[in-house]
Write a protein that binds this DNA or RNA. Structure first.
Lengths: 226, 226
DNA sequence: CGTGAGGTTGATCGCTTTCAACGGAGGTGG
DNA sequence: CCACCTCCGTTGAAAGCGATCAACCTCACG
């Protein structure tokens, strides 16, 4: 089994390449501490260095949908126009680096390869959303959970392992609001995965996937008897 | 009431700016005619000139999810890596222009503003998917339909009108597979909008929105009694 | 040891799906 | 010209999955 500590030796990608001359200030965020609010001017992009930052929308009647999770290496804000379209807040203790938007965009003119890199990043994000919309549109609760866990595992670099153990610092509520479900359904799906022998949950934040193949089958909707 | 014919006088955006020297060949597509298949090499991007092209995934058990509709002015393929991740086909008679991928990307080096323009395009696409994931994750069937119709209307440039009449060359099945619903639910939702006096359907492909405000309320989930 | 937040489990409800029948528009051939 | 057929959309009845309401559990923390 691979352990989470072993993989990230290379560390996440970072945007120091953007422009060494650009002033970039770091900021620490506690769990549930907001980073930006809907309507804020997009003066800065934020690179996540540590932790997880969510962006979400809350309806007038209280419904909430988490639009995305930003993990270390991810960039927040470039999909926005002049103002942020969603609230963003940390869902775990996090560290972010603020990058002035204007100087980042200006540097594209001087160094086209930056534009290319940002374009690749944007393309990856579009691809991610395409897959996610398939999850939300056509997969059952159990399949969504399986897809989500698998995706977390792949992002952490354990996609090829047969079994995996890692920390999952995402609450049931956050998972639910990201996957378009309720906490109860998330909880029940996790138990179902557990009783089927696909995962173990020593603690609620520790995830052990003992059978990656069956998790993949579920996520890809290739399961014989769902 | 605004009519559909009146608005598009300026015509859709196009990519002739990319590189006049780039050979770009046009292609006509009949309804249901495939453009690319999952796994195809991404040799070309395609700009939609006319009609609507869908990209979608079909599961082993027959479930289908349409990931996106590409309207005139939209670019297909830049979210992909070296191979297309989804099937694409026309859902209405369409015309597309093939743009060689390599020369398009090479031109970024020579003319950084092209990278900027593509980046803006990608950002808009991400923003679109963010909103769509809210639709799929948290909105009811009726609210999804309302959001979808409103979005079509806004794309056509009638977002500010009080009432609108336009052609809707998208079948119930395509709407259903895009919104994560079934044809029956789409049909029932459309009749519900009709009986509530929000829309009229002279023919199944002709949409008249008589009360844009109430459509907006529904789409934004601000309705008093849903 | 009390308290509160987060998670699990059970019972019931309701929206969407599923299964089924019907209707209208367009096309084809007798 | 009309019978027939097929495709697409609509409507009805029943079933099912996830939501809702509610109780209980666990653990961290004061």
């Amino acid at each position: 089994m691979m352990s989470a500590a072993a993989a990230r030796t290379d560390g996440p990608a970072n945007f120091s390449w953007v422009n060494p001359a650009v002033p970039a200030s770091e900021r620490h965020l506690e769990t549930h501490e907001p980073l930006v609010h809907e309507g804020d001017d997009t003066h800065y992009f934020y690179e996540v260095l540590e932790g997880i930052v969510s962006s979400y929308k809350i309806f007038a009647d209280g419904r909430r949908q988490i639009v995305s999770f930003a993990f270390p290496g991810d960039l927040i804000g470039f999909s926005q126009g002049n103002t942020y379209r969603y609230d963003c807040e940390a869902i775990a203790p996090s560290r972010v680096r603020a990058l002035p938007k204007t100087s980042l965009l200006r540097s594209i003119r001087e160094r086209p390869e930056i534009g290319e890199k940002l374009l690749a990043l944007a393309a990856a994000e579009v691809a991610y959303f395409e897959d996610h919309s398939i999850n939300l549109g056509r997969k059952s609760a159990l399949e969504r959970i399986a897809s989500f866990l698998l995706n977390i595992i792949e992002r952490a670099g354990f996609g090829d392992a047969e079994s995996v153990k890692l920390q999952l610092p995402i609450s049931r509520l956050d998972m639910a609001d990201f996957l378009g479900l309720t906490i109860e359904t998330v909880s029940r799906s996790m138990t179902k995965l557990r009783t089927r022998g696909i995962i173990e949950l020593p603690q609620t934040t520790t995830l052990v996937v003992s059978n990656m193949d069956r998790l993949r089958d579920l996520a890809e909707c290739d399961e014989e008897c769902p």
